[in-house]
Amino acid sequence: MNWITNYVRPRINSIFSRREVPENLWTKCDECGTMLFHRELSDNLNVCTNCQHHMYISPRDRFASLFDGGIYTEVEVPEPITDPLHFRDQKRYIDRLKDARRTTGEDEAMLVGEGEMGRTPVVAACQDFSFMAGSMGMYVGNAIVAAAERAVEMKRPLILFSAAGGARMQEGILSLMQMPRTTVAVQMLKEANLPYIVVLTHPTTGGVTASYAMLGDIHIAEPNALICFAGPRVIEQTIREKLPEGFQRAEYLLDHGMLDRVTPRTDMRDELITIVRMLLDLPPAIKGDLPAPAEGPDAAPTPAEAADAAINGEDPEPAKP
């Protein structure tokens, strides 16, 4: 035996027999520490199968689970001025935007889409907390206005998923001005008698909570979501008292009348379908897929056509010859 047999040959064999194993096959739950297989976690909408802890989910993945067949059309959002204040702290604002876009693969912190949910046409908007903490800047304001205008134009309900750390400090007063802008957008929906449903996810804080996130007709939250204006640490330091257990969490707010429901993510789609159809005075959705509608002048209207007719106050029945 020599060094070739003892070292070189095993080394060569190990190189050629090595298998590439992805590092992201397992995810550790932040709450209970359970190691979760990535496919099992994805199928459960990023909810821990052991402790039901709700982890981060991207807007695109959320829309894929929300809309029928995961099919939706993005609503175009007007692009604001990129860096109006030429802001710089530890790094330039424009560089922070580039980093966030490279990390998330998204252009900004909110995605707006339209499609059918339980064969009921809706418009939905979702904040992305991984994009600069979902902070509310001019783009987010433009996105909510665009979503509201599209909902009014198409006479559809608007469902908004909030997740933010507050206003975007790099845009200063221009960021704070999105609070009244989005409030006006919500008012447009109310004047058009269209439902506006807000789903508050973890965390929803700051100016977002003080504006469009708490102006809905129905407020739903995911379990254990932090929902507040000022965080619990700031409040404790201010009043110098220990806060109650679970303070500013979804269940605490539900008990004190600030929320209508606390619904697990895996049940959210069915819950929203039921609420939307109830608000539109439509019959309950039929479980499972429906057969293809018949063609011709005497064909019965599709569920989407019936929903549009109900919103417009029209007769959904086809005209008889």
Score class of each variant (00 low, 15 high):
Gly172Pro: 02
Ile173Val: 11
Ile173Tyr: 11
Leu174Met: 11
Leu174Pro: 00
Leu174Asp: 03
Ser175Phe: 02
Ser175Val: 08
Met177Ser: 14
Met177His: 14
Gln178Glu: 08
Gln178Ala: 02
Gln178Met: 07
Met179Gly: 01
Met179Ser: 07
Met179Pro: 00
Pro180Leu: 08
Pro180Met: 08
Pro180Asn: 06
Arg181Leu: 10
Arg181Gly: 06
Thr182Arg: 05
Thr182Glu: 14
Thr183Pro: 03
Thr183Trp: 06
Val184Thr: 15
Val184Ser: 12
Ala185Asn: 01
Val186Phe: 08
Gln187Ala: 12
Gln187Glu: 15
Gln187Val: 07
Gln187Gly: 14
Met188Tyr: 10
Leu189Pro: 02
Leu189Ile: 10
Lys190Leu: 04
Lys190Gly: 04
Lys190Arg: 15
Lys190Val: 07
Glu191Gly: 09
Glu191Met: 13
Ala192Pro: 05
Asn193Glu: 14
Asn193Val: 10
Asn193Trp: 06
Leu194Phe: 00
Leu194Asp: 01
Tyr196Leu: 12
Tyr196Gln: 07
Tyr196Asn: 04
Ile197Glu: 09
Val198Asp: 05
Val198Gly: 07
Val199Ser: 13
Val199Phe: 12
Leu200Ala: 11
Leu200Ile: 12
His202Arg: 06
Thr204Lys: 07
Thr204Pro: 02
Thr205Gln: 07
Thr205Gly: 01
Gly206Leu: 07
Gly207Arg: 00
Val208Ile: 03
Val208Ala: 01
Thr209Val: 08
Ser211Ile: 01
Met214Ala: 11
Leu215Gly: 02
Gly216Ile: 12
Gly216Pro: 05
Gly216Thr: 13
Gly216Trp: 05
Ile218Arg: 15
His219Gln: 06
His219Val: 03
His219Leu: 09
Ala221Lys: 05
Glu222Asp: 14
Glu222Lys: 05
Glu222Val: 13
Glu222Gly: 07
Pro223Asp: 13
Pro223Tyr: 11
Pro223Cys: 11
Pro223Ile: 13
Pro223Phe: 12
Ala225Met: 00
Ile227Cys: 02
Cys228Thr: 00
Cys228Phe: 00
Cys228Leu: 00
Ala230Val: 09
Ala230Thr: 13
Gly231Ser: 11
Gly231Lys: 02
Gly231Ala: 12
Gly231Met: 07
Pro232Ala: 09
Pro232Gly: 08
Pro232Ser: 03
Pro232Val: 05
Arg233Trp: 10
Val234Ser: 08
Val234Glu: 01
Ile235Lys: 08
Ile235Asn: 06
Glu236Thr: 14
Ile239Trp: 11
Ile239Ser: 02
Lys242Tyr: 06
Lys242Gly: 04
Leu243Trp: 07
Leu243Arg: 03
Pro244Arg: 13
Gly246Ser: 10
Gln248Ile: 10
Glu251Asn: 07
Glu251Ile: 12
Tyr252Asn: 01
Tyr252Ile: 00
Leu253Gln: 05
Leu254Met: 10
Asp255Phe: 08
Asp255Cys: 06
Asp255Leu: 11
His256Ile: 05
Gly257Asn: 06
Gly257Ala: 09
Gly257Pro: 05
Gly257Cys: 12
Met258Ile: 08
Met258Pro: 03
Met258Ser: 11
Met258Glu: 14
Met258His: 14
